[in-house]
Design a protein around this nucleic acid. Structure first.
Lengths: 220, 220
DNA sequence: TGCTTCTGTGAATAAAACTTCACAGAAGCG
DNA sequence: CGCTTCTGTGAAGTTTTATTCACAGAAGCA
C-alpha cells in the first residue's frame, strides 16, 4: 500500500483530497500543521507528501527543508493558492517533485501524483534483479552509453551502435552487448535489432533517478 | 575564462545582456535561434546557457531537451516574457538551474548567473559524484556491507568492521576501506573511527530505496 | 557470380580489480 | 619494560574484466 501524507491547514480541502486519494487506492495520512507532519514522519514511512506552501506555523518551504534533513529524497508535491513564479521556482529548486496551484482539478492532482510516484518507483517486476549484476553491469560507462543510445533511438542495429559510439572495434562492442543481453537489459528482435527489455527500461529509469538524486545532494 | 551562451530571438535584448556579461568578465556567445545554439554547442564548451523560453523554430524547452542529450548537467537559466507557473515548473522539472521573467533587472540576472555558476562549481569539485565511481564502488557487495554496518552503528573502528563482517584478513578490509574513502563515502575522525560522509549517507539512501522496491516486488 | 558489409564466435592478450603475504609503527596493558 | 592487539603500507600474486586478434557464415549488392 502506497502511503501519502497530505499537509494543509484547510481542513475541507484536506479531507476531500484525502478521500479522493483513498478511493484511488492510496493510504492517506492528514496533517493540519507542519509540526504535526513532522510528528507523523517520525513514526511512519511515506512514499509521497503533498504540501501546502502557505500555512500558519512552519511554512511549506520550511517544512520541506526539515523533511529534506531526514529524507533527502522524499518526493514532495507543493500545492499553493498563490500562483507565483518565484514560489514555484523556489520550491522546485528545493527539490519539489511538482508544483500545483489551487484551485486544481482533481484529475490534475492524480496525474501529478501518478507521475511523481512513477519517477520515485524502482520497478515492480524486478524479481530477477540481483543487485550485484545490475550494479556491475551499470558500472561500465560504455554499457551505460549503449543502453542510453538504444533507448533514445528506440532500437538499433549492431553497426548503428558501433557508429554512434564511434567504436571501430566491433568485437569489443559485442563483448559488452553480450553482457547486457545476459543481464537481460537488452534483447534482439527478429531483424537482429537491439531493443531494451522492460527490465532495461526500468533500470535506465532508476539510473536517471539516481543521477537526479545525486545531483540534488550536492546542492542541499 | 567562463563561457556563456545567450540564446534569444530578440536581438536588442541579446546584445545588451551580452554586453553586460562581457563587462562582468564572461566570454559571451550569442545565438538568435535554437539551431544556431546547437551549432555553437557542437564546437565549443560552455559553462552556462541563458535560454529564452519562447522563440521561433526550436522552443526553449525543446532546445533544452536537445542540450540535455549532449550535456545532461549543463547549467541552463531559462528566461521568458510570459511568467507562467506551468512554464516555470516545466522548465525546472527539465532541469533548468533557474528561471527569470522579463523584464528583469540586470543585477537580478547577474545574481542568478553567479549563483548558478557557484552551484555548478561546487558540483564539479565533488568528483565522487561521478557516476562511474559511485556505481563501481557500489558494485562490490563487501563495500555495500561496510557502508551498511557503519551507517547502522553510526561509526565503527577498523577492527569492529572486520569482526562484524567476519573478515579475518584485515588488509583486504583495508583495500576496500581505501576505495570507499577515496570515493568520499567514508571518512575517519580524530579517533580513527570510520564515519559516513554526507555523500555516503545520500548514496546509501538511494540504495535502500532500491532494496526496498526489490523486497516489495518479491512479496507482491 | 564475386565482392563487400554486417554480424558474430572463440582464443589470446592486456588491464583492472581483488586477495594474500610480509612487515612495522602505534597504542594498550601486564 | 616486554608482550599483544590495533592500524596501516607496499609488493606479489590471483582472479575478473576488458580489449584485441584471427577467422567465418549471412546478407546485400553490382
Amino acid at each position: 500500500m502506497i502511503e501519502i501524507m497530505m499537509v494543509d491547514d484547510d481542513q475541507d480541502l484536506r479531507e476531500s483530497v484525502a478521500e479522493v486519494l483513498s478511493e484511488a487506492g492510496f493510504a492517506v495520512t492528514e496533517a493540519g500543521r507542519g509540526e504535526e507532519a513532522l510528528e507523523h514522519l517520525a513514526h511512519k514511512n511515506f512514499d509521497l507528501i503533498l504540501l501546502d506552501l502557505i500555512m500558519p506555523g512552519l511554512s511549506g518551504l520550511e517544512l520541506m527543508g526539515r523533511i529534506r534533513e531526514k529524507s533527502p529524497r522524499m518526493p514532495v508535491i507543493m500545492i499553493t493558492a498563490f500562483a507565483s513564479v518565484d514560489n514555484a521556482v523556489a520550491a522546485m529548486r528545493q527539490g519539489a517533485s511538482d508544483y500545483i496551484t489551487k484551485p486544481f482539478r482533481i484529475d490534475a492532482l492524480l496525474a501529478s501524483v501518478g507521475r511523481v510516484l512513477e519517477e520515485a518507483r524502482f520497478d515492480s517486476c524486478m524479481t530477477s534483479l540481483d543487485l550485484d549484476t545490475v550494479l556491475s553491469c551499470l558500472s561500465n560507462p560504455l554499457r551505460r552509453q549503449i543502453l542510453a543510445h538504444v533507448e533514445q533511438e528506440g532500437g538499433l542495429r549492431f553497426m548503428d551502435i558501433c557508429r554512434k559510439l564511434e567504436l571501430t572495434d566491433h568485437t569489443k562492442m559485442n563483448f559488452h552487448l553480450k553482457i547486457l543481453k545476459e543481464a537481460d537489459f537488452l534483447d534482439q528482435d527478429d531483424n537482429k535489432i537491439y531493443l531494451l527489455t522492460s527490465l532495461g527500461t526500468q533500470v535506465l529509469g532508476c539510473m536517471r533517478v539516481l543521477m537526479k538524486k545525486l545531483a540534488y545532494s550536492t546542492i542541499s
